[in-house]
């Protein structure tokens, strides 16, 4: 109101503080309003609930009550373990995909995508079938006489790890594959022609150049692990509950939505913290595998 609208726009080439919204911004308004209404407001509901039902003391409980803090700490540990395993198993697969003939690359890629596209719920169900007391592995071991009694392969951390790593490997592989494909063959050839052994070419040239992909895949797997619910709920034991399970239990079973909300806020804070730190080094698009045109390199 105090500004004088008659003044002409500053001629300085630097960016103005406030740009007038153009037509395209207006076209974006319905989308922005919708996403705030159905996604933003529910998140605000969680924060409000966590502070008012019954009081902000919920957060003290998350930290102090060993029941909650243990599930939080366990979640971080498992996420870390899953990340390391996914990268360690995924790297050779990505390497085989990126550095072999067309036929093998296609077979490996097809297997990866078939697994990737099978619903998480179905794959978790499959692991129940495989690891059950009367399941595939136990049937086989009993049949061959290696064991006399079924060994407990399910309802424990082992099963959770197997299930989570199986589901998350494709994310690691796709990120690593993209970075391996981005390395120019000439670089490796140069090292080779200068007398480096294949192992040396790998450790000194290929591996360092593919590290951004490893980091991107690792961060994605870690963050996704933090929020896993279905797989630990179906494959894990009652003693080793992860934070997302605690959230659901508090809301659904114990009817303490305020407590569940507080844990949800802690979970989101943890995830966003990882992203904030990670995006200082790698772009968000790269982590989410959306660099370039979709359907391009990351398929």
């Amino acid at each position: 109101m105090t500004s004088s609208p008659v003044v002409t726009a500053p001629a300085a080439p630097r960016r103005r503080r406030f740009e007038r919204p153009n037509f395209w911004t207006l076209a974006g308004l319905p989308g922005i309003v919708y996403l705030i209404a159905v996604f933003g407001i529910p998140l605000v509901f969680i924060v409000v609930r966590s502070l008012t039902d019954p009081s902000p003391a919920n957060y003290a409980a998350v930290v102090e009550d060993p029941l909650y803090s243990a599930s939080l700490w366990r979640t971080v540990q498992i996420a870390f373990l899953v990340t390391v395993l996914s990268l360690a198993i995924g790297y050779p697969l990505a390497y085989a995909m990126a550095r072999s003939g067309k036929r093998l690359a296609m077979v490996l890629g097809a297997a990866l995508l078939l697994s990737f596209w099978t619903s998480l719920l179905v794959r978790t169900f499959a692991w129940q079938v495989i690891l059950n007391n009367t399941g595939l592995v136990n049937q086989f071991l009993l049949g061959t006489g290696i064991i006399d009694e079924p060994i407990p392969l399910i309802r424990n951390l082992f099963a959770v790890l197997v299930g989570m790593v199986h589901i998350l490997i494709p994310y690691a592989v796709l990120a690593i594959y993209a970075s391996l494909r981005g390395i120019k063959p000439e670089v490796e050839q140069a090292a080779q022609s200068l007398g480096a052994s294949p192992w040396r070419v790998f450790t000194r040239v290929t591996l360092p150049l593919s590290l951004p992909g490893v980091a991107a895949g690792g961060i994605l797997v870690f963050v996704l692990s933090l929020g896993f619910y279905i797989t630990p709920a179906l494959l894990g034991g009652p003693g080793d509950i992860l934070i997302s399970q605690s959230v659901v239990l508090q809301v659904q079973q114990y009817l303490q939505p305020g407590m569940g909300a507080a844990m949800a806020v802690v979970l989101v804070a943890l995830v966003l913290l990882v992203f904030v730190i990670a995006t200082r080094f790698i772009g968000l698009g790269r982590i989410l595998g959306v660099t370039g045109a979709p359907g391009g390199e990351s398929r």
Binding site: E19, R20, W24, I46, V223, L267, V268
Partner: peptide, 30 residues
């Protein structure tokens, strides 16, 4: 668009990918 920073808007639109499903679930539920 103008007036809204592009990176801010992009992060906002991608946010549902970053927030764990469980959190979206109980938010929507509440």
């Amino acid at each position: 668009g103008t007036a809204i920073p592009r990176t801010g808007l992009t992060t906002f639109a991608l946010m549902p990918m970053l927030v764990p499903l469980v959190v979206i679930a109980i938010g929507v539920y509440l």
